[in-house]
């Protein structure tokens, strides 16, 4: 029975991926991509990866989905993605098809006959008492492999700077100040504190159960995005030093702490066991705050790129 459910889910994921890429219009493509992401999240829940499922649903399907929909305002002008010169010629399509088919056969043989390396489950479990947290995924993210996580917090900040680079200067967009629906504002006012509360809860939960900084960050970021959509200028009205502090706190504090303990003779990101639990919670909180801030700023930038923005942003040069 369960094998059937899994097979169904796997086939559905493949089907949605194909349909998404063959969709005749871009909005359809986006919504099928949503469905693909949610199917993957279900698959991950089935595979016992609850953290990943939350992260996928929240970041990859949720946040990126919002950006994709916002981008549709620019791209949906040409409604159809179909025949009008979109597809390459038949010959090159055939070549690509043949190439991908060969690739597929080799890939399937490879994943089918992959030897069982055994993974690191036992090792991760054995060292859990030394990590300062009780949830293995959090232990990997914030202790065993905290270097990766640190760089990743940085990548979100770099993505924001990269976004600024497309316009040639740093720019925190104001909300589109057309009359925001009063009902929407009320609902947002109601939802934002709830989101922040649930985010904090998930963050705290990360010590023992699925949850943690990234999941919390997306909820907080969602709060920021809602406020932006409701007409509250979250970043644009903030003092520059404060918003830079918000954006860099996670990445910076992580590093600062690492340097501090390194000065004491340890390695970078090596925490003494007695304080590890607390330090990890502080690092996670600041990281979540910074990621949330960056996600909000990324969305605000996207929203401000739109031609219908009240304050249309024109690039510095060109």
């Amino acid at each position: 029975m369960s094998l059937w459910i899994d097979s169904l889910l796997a086939v559905l994921a493949v089907f949605l991926a194909v349909r998404c890429l063959l969709a005749p219009t871009l909005p359809q493509c986006v919504f099928l991509f949503f469905a693909f992401g949610l199917t993957l999240a279900l698959a991950w829940a089935r595979l016992g990866a609850v953290d990943v499922a939350i992260a996928e649903a929240a970041i990859a399907a949720g946040f990126l989905g919002v950006l994709l929909i916002d981008a549709l305002r620019d791209f949906s002008r040409s409604r159809s993605t179909g025949e009008g010169g979109d597809r390459p010629s038949r010959v090159s399509q055939g070549l690509v098809g043949a190439g991908v088919l060969v690739f597929l056969v080799v890939a399937i043989e490879a994943v089918w006959r992959v030897p069982n390396g055994g993974g690191l489950t036992a090792l991760a479990a054995d060292n859990l008492p030394q990590s300062g947290v009780d949830h293995p995924v959090t232990a990997v993210l914030l202790n065993y492999r905290s270097y990766d996580t640190w760089l990743e917090v940085g990548v979100v900040l770099m993505a924001l700077l990269a976004l600024f680079a497309t316009g040639g200067r740093e720019y925190f967009c104001r909300p589109v100040v057309r009359a925001v629906d009063p009902l929407l504002r009320q609902v947002i006012l109601l939802f934002t504190p709830v989101l922040f509360l649930v985010g904090a809860f998930l963050l705290y939960l990360g010590k023992t159960e699925p949850g943690g900084a990234f999941q919390a960050a997306v909820l907080w970021g969602a709060g920021g995005i809602l406020l932006h959509l409701g007409g509250w200028p979250v970043f644009a009205s903030m003092a520059p030093w404060l918003r830079h502090l918000l954006l860099t706190a996670g990445f910076g504090f992580f590093l600062l702490l690492g340097f501090l303990f390194m000065a004491g003779g340890g390695a970078l990101f090596e925490y003494p066991l007695a304080q590890a639990g607390l330090l990890i919670l502080v690092v996670e909180t600041l990281a979540a705050l910074s990621i949330a801030a960056a996600l909000t700023a990324i969305f605000a930038y996207f929203n401000g790129m739109s031609a219908e923005s009240a304050e249309p942003f024109t690039p510095a040069s060109s």
Partner: peptide, 22 residues
């Protein structure tokens, strides 16, 4: 895997720098 993260850092920053001329 850490190499993957570093090549993404390098990739994103490199492209961001490449488009700076606007």
């Amino acid at each position: 895997f850490n190499l993957f993260v570093t090549i993404e850092v390098v990739g994103i920053c490199a492209v961001a720098l490449a488009v700076l001329s606007g």
